[in-house]
Design a protein around this nucleic acid. Structure first.
Length: 495
RNA sequence: GGGCCGCUAGCUCAUCAGGUAGAGCACCUGCCUUUUAAGCAGGUGGUGACUGGUUCAAGUCCAGUGCGGCCUACCA
């Protein structure tokens, strides 16, 4: 049978190819090179009174979104990146060939039009077309004009259609871009330098996650896609870049769900001479500023919640928050007791979990879901924070914080561990624990330790989950709605 | 990984109890010089995700596979 092409079964495509031939017979190139437009549609809408009054000839370009033919005339709509406008074309107004061409156009085609604005009987702003140019002929039809594209699978796989048809989707990705601009501007305004560090790393680190593995042919070595850029950025602080940041695409070879995509974007930044208190102030200020840039205020709606991002945000210690829920201060409580507390609350506990894992579990089950308004959870147990500096006051804790908003963690930060001998010891503990768990060999990052031994100043560091921030600020409930091309299984297996 | 649900025309969806499929939009033909989910008349379009089973007969029942959605778990 050979390959069955879905395309070839579409009759409409064949119809459009016939039209394409007729267009060529008119001497028209259906795929010309450029078109100069005088206005964007949004500008036209804004200054419509003036444009109508002066009968100013304008030119617009865009995709045909609708056609309503009436014999000798036609109405239609074109859409550009700023909006949509109705046009009106009448056979007596345009040249004969132009009307012939128009009759061969379809919804989905790109056109350029020149003419003068007027208002119809129903007061709709409309361009009376004097000249029309085909800018690109489309062969496949757009989704249905009223219901649009609903099927989520198709929306993710053919995001371009989703963007054409669902304005709110376009809006999310415009906002995503603006959020990143705003964050970058804020960082630069505070003297941070943007850098690029390796994505292909021979040794991965900076987080606890399984990596993607690849191979470099001419070096004949295995490489990993980074799971974090933390260790490289701190090398740069050692190198004298006192404030440094990177928007880092990270890759983690783990499960996917509403808040995890295998590749995602993290903004990490490091500032010499800051501790985690400084970072907290910085972060709340930055997020509030981004929100203000976007919406002109600090209040946002996320699902059923009204959230206020205005600083200062509350702070709760990790164990303090747990104590509120369990009535017990758990810092010095042993594993057996922790397991008991979990099972009393119907939390499934696997046997042999480490103390850190148990605490983490209790926290995410009991505390996390209730952290709706912005709050900094601070001073985590040392077991789950191998890169954070020991707490200046409390034994067994580190100077770390995680801000929670709307029930999920949006960042992770600490006073960076800059004692090279302490770091070595913590790495060694991590490594042996991981080897126990997975049976794999995990080499120490000696190169990073060497950098630390040359001296890292006191440093505050921060990693912000960009996708989650975008979710929060666009009221999106799946990470797939804020990533243009989320990871999907291939549609057809290749033979 | 587990549970539930979905997959029917390009798109959005029907098809109640098994009798070889329908609508709207889109497309084609005709009519229509201010319409806007334009209208009117006529028409084309389906390997019912895929594979197998039960049955005289399967989109419909059963099993498996694929892809997806929601929930859940794992994972920071």
């Amino acid at each position: 049978m050979g390959t069955k092409s879905k395309m070839e079964s579409i009759r409409e495509r064949q119809q459009r190819i016939l039209k394409l031939d007729k267009i060529k017979q008119l001497g028209v190139n259906p795929y010309p090179y450029a078109f100069s437009r005088s206005h964007m549609i949004e500008e036209v809408t804004k200054s419509q009174d003036e444009l109508i009054e002066n009968e100013k000839e304008i030119s617009l370009a865009g995709r045909i979104m609708a056609l309503r033919g009436h014999g000798h005339t036609s109405f239609g709509n074109i859409k550009d990146n700023t909006g949509k406008i109705q046009f009106y074309i009448k056979d007596e107004v345009v040249k004969e060939d132009a009307f012939k061409l128009f009759k061969l156009l379809d919804v989905g085609d790109f056109i350029g039009v020149r003419g003068v604005l007027f208002r119809t009987r129903t007061e709709e702003l409309t361009l009376r077309v004097r000249e029309i140019e085909l800018l690109s002929k489309s062969l496949l039809p757009l989704p249905e004009k009223y219901h649009g594209l609903q099927n989520k699978e198709l929306r993710y796989r053919r995001r371009y259609l989703d963007l054409i048809v669902n304005d709110d989707v376009m809006d999310i990705f415009v906002k995503r871009s603006r959020i990143i601009d705003s964050m970058r501007g804020y960082l630069k305004g505070q003297g941070f330098l943007e850098v690029d560090t390796p994505i292909l790393q021979s040794l991965y680190g900076g987080a606890a996650a399984r990596p993607f593995k690849t191979h470099h042919n001419s070096l004949d070595i295995d490489l990993y896609l980074r799971i974090a850029d933390e260790l490289y950025l701190k090398r740069l602080v050692v190198g004298g870049i006192e404030r440094v940041f990177e928007f880092s695409r990270d890759f983690r070879n783990e499960g996917m769900d509403r808040s995890h995509n295998p590749e995602f974007t993290m903004m990490e930044c490091y500032a010499a001479y800051w501790d985690y208190n400084d970072v907290m102030k910085f972060l709340e200020g930055m997020l509030a500023s981004i929100c203000h840039d976007l919406y002109g205020g600090y209040e946002i709606t996320y699902g059923e919640y009204e959230i206020n991002l205005k600083p200062p945000w509350k702070k709760k210690t990790f164990f303090g928050a747990l104590e509120e829920k369990t009535g017990k201060y758990l810092k010095d409580v042993d594993n057996e007791e922790l397991e008991k507390i979990a099972s009393e609350r119907d939390i499934d506990v696997e046997k042999g979990l480490s103390r850190g894992a148990l605490l983490d579990l209790l926290f995410s089950e009991l505390v996390e879901p209730e952290l709706i308004q912005p709050v900094f959870i601070i001073d985590h147990p040392i077991e789950i924070s191998p890169l954070a500096k020991k707490h200046r006051e409390f034994d067994g804790l580190v100077e770390r914080f995680e801000p929670y908003i709307a029930g999920f963690e949006i960042a992770n930060a600490f006073s960076e561990l800059n004692d090279p001998l302490d770091q070595r010891q913590r790495f060694e503990e991590q490594v042996s624990k991981r080897e126990e768990d997975s049976g794999e060999f995990h080499p120490l990052d000696e190169d990073y330790l060497m950098a630390l031994e040359h001296g890292l100043p006191p440093t505050g560091g921060l990693g912000v989950g960009i996708d989650r921030v975008v979710m929060l600020l666009t009221n999106s409930h799946s990470i797939r709605d804020v990533i243009l091309f989320p990871q999907m299984r291939p549609e057809e297996s290749q033979d």
